[in-house]
Design a protein around this nucleic acid. Sequence first.
DNA 1: TCATTAAATTGTT
DNA 2: AACAATTTAATGA
Length: 224
Amino acid sequence: MIPAEQLQSFADWARDLKEDELERARKGMTVKAYPKRTYVCHVGDRLEHWTGVVSGLAKIGLISSSGKATAFIGVPPGGWFGEGTVLKREPRRYDVMALRDSEIAMMNAATFHWLFENSVGFNRFLVRQINERLGHFIALAEYHRLLDAPGRLARNIAWLFNPVLYPRLGPHIDITQEEIGELSGLSRQIVNKNLKVLEGEGLLRVEHGGITVLDLERLSRYGG
DNA sequence: TCATTAAATTGTT
DNA sequence: AACAATTTAATGA
């Protein structure tokens, strides 16, 4: 069973649970290591878990109705996803891949449904999260319609810093330019060039093996 | 603590 | 995709 204090480190929602609920959650979860470039789940999977990133970095690949990949969303440690498909008991509509060696937490569907039925705190968290995700998907329309390379880059980075979906300590994230490329669907060269552009405008700072966001507000509007 | 080396990442073509 | 330059991490004196 997962130690309570460790759970807090990657599950912000654990704060909202009462003692017995927390106990139930810890029993219904497992954490597993996924090596770089391995899939956490595939489109069409039915065995359902609510899924969270403990360490590393995951990439969600959205699939259009025609079955083609349309966009990617990066999920840093502390991010949870899959509540929609667990709630509706539907097959997954997306792939999830570990971009680097990662630890992934899985909560089994029975536990998820129990919390959904019994925990006020858990539901408060879910509403907040689903609402935030809705805004995210609306933004995705603009992303496809009118954004060029630097715009896409800015959006993808800004999304990693969504304070509701991915509560994080500070403005820094460890991520290579190659990983940013995989998330935004751009080549590493284009990423490198455009990161410099964003840096020149004072939106972020390019570091070795990471970036620090200086102006999240402007970054999330860039190009729009 | 410092020097050396290997590995990873960045920057450029 | 290839290559050079830079940064970091690991090793051992």
